[in-house]
Structure formats: C-alpha cells, structure tokens
Design a protein around this nucleic acid. Structure first.
Length: 320
DNA sequence: AATCCCCCCAACCGCGCAAAT
DNA sequence: AATTTGCGCGGTTGGGGGGAT
C-alpha cells in the first residue's frame, strides 16, 4: 500500500492511454479526474452512462463508475491498512469468502478493489503460511469450547441470516463459472436430520448459521454440546416473525450444516428477508474478537476446511 | 551499474442480476 | 413474456517500482 495519490498516477504507473473504439482506456489523468469529480459532486452518483456522455470524457460508463468508487469518492480512506482492519478482513473472508464488496462494506473507507488486491498480495500468503505452520505443529487439534465460544456461536447464529451473505451463496449456486456443491444425498439426509427442515419455514434453526461456509461442516454434538445451547427467541422486525432457536440435537448426531441455499428453498426464502444493514459485523466482531477466534478454531479446526482434515487453521491471534 | 524478476495496484473484462421498456 | 439497459461484482491483466542478483 502506501501509494502516493497526490501526484498524477498516469505519469507514474499503470497502463498507457489507449484510444480503441474512440474511448480512452488506461490510467486516468488529473484532468479527467477533475472533470468526473466535479460532475458527480454536482449531480450525484448513478446514471453512469449519462455521466460519461455529459462530461465529454471519452470513457465508458463502467470506467467512470469505477474511477469514482475506487479513487475519487471523498470518503475513501487512503494509506496503509491497519492491523485491526487486516484482522477484520481475514475474519470476514473466512466468513464470507471472496465477497469483496460485502467485506468492504464492513470497512468504512475501503473499497472492494483495494481489499481484493490486499488480500491477493498480502493476506492470502499470510494466512496460508500461518495455516501450514499449524498443519505442521499440531496433528490433531482438540478444542475445548469455552463458555465464550458457545456464546460466540450464538452470536454467529444471529449473524448468519444475512441477506447479502446468503444471496451471495445463491449466486454461487447459479454461477456457471464456479458452481457450488450440490447437496449430496448424504447432506440432504443430514438436512432432514437437522431441524432446519421444519415444515414451518418461519422457524430458523441456529445450526444453519454455518451456511456462510460453502462446505459441509460436520462435527459431533458430543464434542460440543454447549454449542447447541438454545438461545432466547428473537424477533425480526423486518419479517415480523419470531426466530426460534434450535433445540440441541440428540447426542451422537452428526450435524452437517450444508449450504442451505442450494437445497432448501423454503428456508432460503425466509432467510432472504433479513436485511444486512441491520447488522454491522465489524461492531460485533470488535466486541467479541477473542471469543470469535475460539469459535473459528473450533469450527474450522475440527472440520478441516482447506482440505487439511487433521489440522486446524490457526486462530487470528496467531497471525502476523 | 546494469539487468532481472517479483510485487503491488489501477484498471479492464466478462458475467449475472434487476429494473425498465 | 421477452428484450434491453444499467449497474455491480469478482477475476484477471499489465506496467511501474524497487529489491535482489
């Protein structure tokens, strides 16, 4: 990071101007920035086709939009990404995957492009290195969940009915490029086992909270009985419905909180009604970073995401 | 000092969704 | 209902910077 934005970037780096199809491509000049900035400040965001035409800039609507959102917008935060921001990105990425725009929404002043770049250039390696270290150091990770982690699981249950998160999962299901796992017979069976398949679609099972993970996450109830402690029913204002917490499954049951968006339309419909804006993940994470780490370790560690079945991912306190 | 090579990041591209027609 | 248009998102590209050799 630490790019000097004060000077003209067109003269320093990036692609040279290109004039194919009558449109300028490549790095924006200071003059173009000024024209675009003035126009948007005057007329507001949106209608990017009009912006491109009205300003006389030989830029595509897309290019104008991107330039504004990633560079010219006044509230964009410049400079290095702080440690706590870094931590948050890693957590959110674990939770949301490559949903850069969603992650960016939780980091005021940061753009999805910036976060995406930062992830690919810095954080990805950091996480991988840390992950491989743990793969070497710990053969079998047994985590005793604390009261805190149980608490954080409840919290996660509340986090998960996140419209955007789930919608994103849906998009992945539909995506031709990266199709999501279709629910296997096995996972479908486990779904039946899970009370999230309740005929009452207004009842949302807390175990479905792991739907944010695009993989089946099996773990034994016996090992984490406290993870299934029922929570107080909450009331969703948007839905006008009571959200009922899950009852603890029978001892010995193996829970597969598969991606519900792919296999359970009824539940999916009800979850779609949640409004992401009602929850600011960062606030919750900020409040409960420590416990969230433990929960991460418990779930991710036990469940072998990243194909490292025996070895857990590290908690974030281990990173860096 | 010169060259090589990797890193960083701005910007482009293709795709999908939703609203408008 | 079908088509068009606009927008947003995530993946990828490409070139300058700067450290390594």
């Amino acid at each position: 990071m630490g790019v000097n934005h004060s000077s003209n970037p067109a003269l320093e780096m990036g692609r040279p101007p290109c004039f194919e199809d009558g449109l300028n491509k490549g790095v924006w000049t200071a003059h173009e920035d000024e024209v675009l900035g003035n126009y948007v400040k005057l007329h507001g965001e949106g209608k990017w086709v009009n912006v491109a035409k009205a300003t006389g800039l030989k830029r595509s609507a897309k290019s104008c939009r991107l330039r504004w959102l990633n560079y010219l917008k006044p509230d964009i935060k410049r400079g290095n990404i702080a440690l706590d921001e870094e931590d948050l990105i890693i957590r959110l990425h674990r939770l949301l995957g490559n949903r850069w725009s969603l992650i960016a929404k939780r980091l005021p002043g940061r753009t999805d492009n910036e976060i995406k770049n930062y992830w690919h250039s810095t954080l990805k390696k950091k996480v991988q290195e840390s992950s491989s270290n743990h793969c070497k150091s710990k053969k079998k990770h047994v985590m005793e969940p604390s009261a805190e982690s149980a608490e954080s699981l409840k919290m996660d249950a509340c986090l998960s009915p996140n419209k955007d998160v789930i919608k994103s999962s849906s998009n992945h299901c539909k995506s031709k490029k990266k199709p999501m796992m279709e629910p296997s017979a096995e996972s479908a069976e486990s779904l039946k086992m899970d009370s999230c398949l309740s005929p009452n679609k207004d009842v949302i099972n807390c175990t479905t909270s792991s739907s944010a993970h695009p993989f089946p996450l099996p773990f034994l109830v016996d090992e984490h009985p406290e993870a299934f402690t029922s929570v107080e029913p909450s009331f969703d204002e948007g839905l006008g419905k009571e959200i009922v917490a899950a009852q603890p499954p029978e001892s010995g049951d193996e829970i597969f909180p598969v991606n519900i968006s792919c296999g359970n339309d009824a539940l999916w419909d009800s979850l779609m009604d949640f409004d992401v804006d009602q929850l600011c993940l960062s606030e919750i994470l900020d409040e409960n970073f420590a416990s969230f780490s433990e929960f991460d370790s418990m779930i991710v560690g036990e469940c072998g995401i990243n194909g490292c079945q025996d070895d857990p991912l590290p908690s974030f306190s281990d990173l860096g």
